[in-house]
Simulated assay, not measured.
Amino acid sequence: MQITPEISCRIKLLRLPLIVGIVTIHSSINSVGYADKFFQTLVAGTWGGSCVAFLFMLSGFLFFRNFNLSLNSYKEKLQSRFWTLLVPYLFWNLALLTLVLIVINVPATSGIIQGHYKKYIGDYSFANFIDCLTGYKSLYPIAFHFWYVRDLMAMVILSPVFLLIARKIPYLGIALFATPWLLDFQIGFSIQWLGPLFFYLGCLIAVQKLDLTWLDRQRSAIIGIYLGMALVLAITQTADIKTFQHQLECCTRVMGTAAIWCASDLVSGKLEKACFKFSGLAFFVYAIHEPTVTVFKEVFNKLSKPSNSITVIVYYLLTIILATLITLAVGSFLQRYTPKFFQTITGARG
């Protein structure tokens, strides 16, 4: 499937906003009241979650638009993803592991490492080291947000299966991937069913050459329905109403991906220019936003522990804004003064 200049521009425009959506998820702060819990749920649990789904779908679309069932094509894709996925994945997980080991073994800083990171340093065995890199026991690698890249690499390896399904039973394939996700089906180990489904949807769009202009013609309805579903989902999650909550969340993710695509055509002015200007830094922001957001949350907590919803919301928004701005600044510096290094650690996305 050929990418038109319009589609290419919209994909480029969306890169940074999608990553900021992920930042909103990891910037969440323990709530102290209904208002801040609802606000964080609405932002992170609805928009942020839809951004993750959209990224999987976009990855599938870009992968399969020029992929065919031949050994040469498969080898080329694996070689390409070795540099764009595996190398950055190993670099950032090893870098964070090294940082944690240094900090935890220096008496003056050992108390900083808590929670998620501390549990990975229970011992120095080879099995624990492999778990830090893969998350085979802990579900997530030590750079836990890289579970997305890890799962994406697994789907790249299985890409011929996705392509065969998209060619032979394209719409039955949606049911095959969506059913375990909707039913929250669990087997011996935890699987993020969201990834395979949206990766497959991206594959389906590319293989079947689906007309994306249909979404633009229904823009108002799609965005309106999504906002309504997002509000209902946020209310049910804030109130901890379990009945059909997971199914509503799944449906909101699907509608959210369509709404994100539709909304991308509405961005203009300074915001549009900023999205284009910093699109090459999106992966760097993704890679380094954690533990950056954790540091800001700890700093705010030390300065003044939030005691009301307004304070929590302010801290939450400040964490998102400051983490994004600082990672963009650091990324811009590296991109300018160490271009080869920057390209290596970001998978040549700069």
Rank of each mutant, 00 (worst) to 15 (best):
M1I: 01
M1Y: 12
I3G: 01
I7W: 07
I7P: 00
S8I: 00
R10N: 06
L13E: 09
L18T: 11
G21C: 04
V23W: 01
T24E: 00
I25D: 01
I25N: 09
A35E: 15
K37N: 15
G45H: 13
F54G: 00
L55G: 02
F56Y: 12
F56W: 14
L58G: 01
S59C: 10
S59D: 07
R65S: 07
F67D: 01
S70G: 04
S70W: 03
N72Y: 02
Y74K: 01
E76L: 05
E76I: 15
L78Y: 08
R81F: 09
F91W: 08
W92P: 09
I102T: 03
V106W: 01
V106C: 12
T109A: 10
Q114E: 10
H116V: 00
H116E: 13
G122C: 01
D123N: 14
I130E: 09
D131I: 12
C132M: 10
P141D: 03
Y148A: 11
R150P: 02
R150V: 00
R150N: 10
D151A: 09
M153I: 10
A154P: 04
M155P: 09
V156D: 10
L158K: 08
P160A: 03
I169Q: 06
P170R: 13
Y171R: 03
A175K: 05
L176T: 03
L176A: 12
F177C: 03
A178S: 12
T179N: 06
W181I: 04
L182S: 07
L183D: 03
I191Y: 00
G195S: 13
P196R: 02
L197M: 11
F199R: 00
Y200R: 05
L201I: 00
L204Q: 06
A206P: 00
K209V: 03
L210R: 13
L212M: 14
W214G: 06
S220E: 15
M229E: 14
L231I: 15
L233A: 08
A234C: 05
I235L: 13
T238P: 02
T243H: 14
F244D: 02
H246V: 04
Q247S: 09
E249N: 09
M255E: 02
A258E: 05
A259F: 08
W261C: 03
S264W: 10
D265P: 03
L271W: 09
L271N: 05
E272F: 10
F276Q: 02
A282D: 06
A282Q: 06
F283K: 02
P291R: 07
V293H: 13
V293F: 13
K297I: 15
E298L: 11
S304Q: 06
N308E: 12
S309Q: 07
S309P: 02
I313V: 12
T319D: 08
I320A: 12
L322W: 04
G331N: 04
G331E: 08
S332C: 13
S332L: 15
F333Q: 06
L334P: 00
T338M: 07
T338Y: 10
F341K: 01
Q343T: 07
T344Y: 13
T344A: 12
G350C: 15
